[in-house]
Design a protein around this nucleic acid. Structure first.
Lengths: 247, 247
DNA sequence: GAGTGGTCTAGACCACGAG
DNA sequence: TCGTGGTCTAGACCACTCA
């Protein structure tokens, strides 16, 4: 037996899918919908919560429930080095950068293979696509590898990926770990996503040819619109090989 | 102002983290907890829902709320070819395989670059770690590439990755797309996860040296315990290169 | 101030699990 | 049968947004 909550969610989902309620449009008020479906407000709110988790509906306190516009999907290209990893094809991004000097906490020290409390430069990238937040990146670099222009303490802002560190040695290895988790309260605010919507979190560690870790990046994408794509080309000069190009 | 729901969730989370409530243990009944925290049952249930989404608590209808045992994380190694991609180091997996002959629906035809309704062999892998479901894989192969032993219509079951197709040409390219989404009702049942817990979904397309797609794999992992790791080694014979080993 | 969603109450009744 | 969670009700009061 389908619950009323699911029945209502299914009905609304159908109305959204068929365009009877258009993207960006406001749904009738919860009180109105509750009386329309002849359920109590908590039941109706549960139905809306289902659609929220699916990313179809956005609630705005004091204004109403809105059908989310179908957003362009975010494609993260794996294996790339540096800022160009993010959506190489999509130039319509407005990026804000904030630079801070910090001392490595335990988890970052482990990623970067540096002593705890050693000096790091943190680049906090927040990119927007139009008015909507798009993605969040926290990139950590040992301070001696950060460009001099940002090594000072004054926070800098920029509209591009400029000022990104240029390593001294050629980059040799990128290790990316992809996982999913609930957003932190902070991410809920900056990415403007529902706290019930999981994010795609990518930890990228880049090492140079000497094996030194030159960058650790913590990337966060809204889970309902992000794909991370990894392409591996295998060396094929000997038939039957399975691991060339990999560790 | 923290809501009572969050305050209760925080308190229970703390009790779990500090071991005051041990893994596998049953929590007091919802009615008991509600009176203990002096809230109504819906409020207490909302607090438990928070912990459920975090993967800390598992509800079993008619039995109670249980603290989930901390599970070994699942590591998916990207860029590998064939079944060994899954948790190379972990041999403690019991794998069930079901083989079926199907005709390619649209989305699979696009992935495999074959005509719609062409013959495919579907391998459905369900792996368990002890008693707990671990991961789910649906692997599709053009029928003429599937080994003769499974090309018949009789479903086969096996405890290992045996009978996996061996391509005629060396494998040249693997493209893996990682995303996160809510589980389907089917996945909720087979993986024994909460319907509120996102899964990590990986679509892996493998092509041989002739460019032919030899395998499309749809992999699903519980989002609270899965990591997908991709390691890219860059060719470093010319300094400043950025894309060797990539497309 | 009017309308919206956010949270919460104090019950009710149903479905599942174990004895 | 009994205790458990699953769902739902019909309100209440508070906080936010906008005119």
């Amino acid at each position: 037996m389908p619950s009323r909550r699911d029945a209502i969610a299914d009905d609304l989902r159908d109305q959204i899918a068929t365009g009877r309620i258009k993207p960006g449009e406001r749904l009738p008020s919860e009180a109105h919908l509750a009386s329309q479906y002849m359920v109590s407000t908590p039941t109706l709110r549960n139905a809306l919560a289902v659609l929220q988790r699916e990313g179809l509906v956005e609630k705005i306190h004091g204004k109403g429930n809105f059908v989310r516009r179908p957003l362009r999907r975010i494609t993260y290209l794996g294996g790339r080095v540096g800022p160009d990893a993010l959506i190489a094809a999509d130039a319509a991004l407005r990026v804000t950068v904030r630079t801070t000097q910090i001392r490595a906490p335990g988890h970052l020290a482990a990623l970067l293979k540096v002593p705890v409390r050693s000096s790091l430069t943190e680049f906090l990238y927040l990119s927007h696509e139009g008015e909507l937040p798009h993605s969040l990146a926290r990139i950590y670099v040992p301070r001696d590898l950060a460009p001099a222009a940002v090594a000072g303490d004054s926070p800098s802002c920029d509209r591009t990926w400029a000022r990104f560190p240029v390593p001294r040695h050629p980059l040799a290895q990128v290790r990316e770990t992809v996982t999913t988790r609930l957003p932190t309260p902070d991410e809920v605010l900056t990415l403007r996503i529902s706290s019930a919507l999981s994010v795609l979190a990518i930890t990228r560690v880049t090492a140079d040819s000497t094996g030194r870790v030159v960058e650790a990046a913590l990337l966060v994408f809204p889970g309902d619109r992000a794909d991370a794509v990894f392409t591996t080309h295998h060396v094929i000069d000997e038939p039957g090989d399975k691991d060339d190009g990999q560790g």
